[in-house]
């Protein structure tokens, strides 16, 4: 196609807040020359069916992720801490919702 190597639009990860009060959730990615255009493109691509009230875009290469090999040391200790989960505690029914 092109004689010289053209610069490709960078990849962005898109996060949508579906409703007020909810967290932003990753919905997919897209290409755009910069952040402002990524926001516009995200609106057009990922909220065509009025799916959101707020958008985040993040350059895909700015995300630092756990590497798959980390899985055990990073996540397994938490499995022991069952006391962090509400169902760990037996609350008598008479107390009502807690």
């Amino acid at each position: 196609m092109s004689e010289h190597k053209r610069k490709e639009w960078p990849l962005w990860e898109v996060f949508v807040r579906g409703q007020h009060g909810l967290s932003h959730r990753h919905v997919g990615s897209l290409h755009a020359p910069d952040a402002e255009m990524a926001i516009n493109n995200a609106r057009d691509v990922y909220t065509r069916r009025s799916e959101g009230v707020s958008l985040w875009v993040v350059p895909a290469d700015a995300i630092t992720a756990t590497s798959p090999g980390d899985k055990e040391p990073l996540f397994e200790p938490a499995n022991d801490k069952v006391y962090r989960h509400p169902t760990f505690y037996d609350i008598p029914d008479e107390i009502g919702h807690m």
Binding site: W9, L30, H31, A32, N40, N41, D44, V45, R48
Partner: peptide
């Protein structure tokens, strides 16, 4: 010229 533009202009 780009998929993102195709979608935006259709909107």
């Amino acid at each position: 010229p780009a998929l993102e533009e195709d979608i935006a202009l259709a909107n």
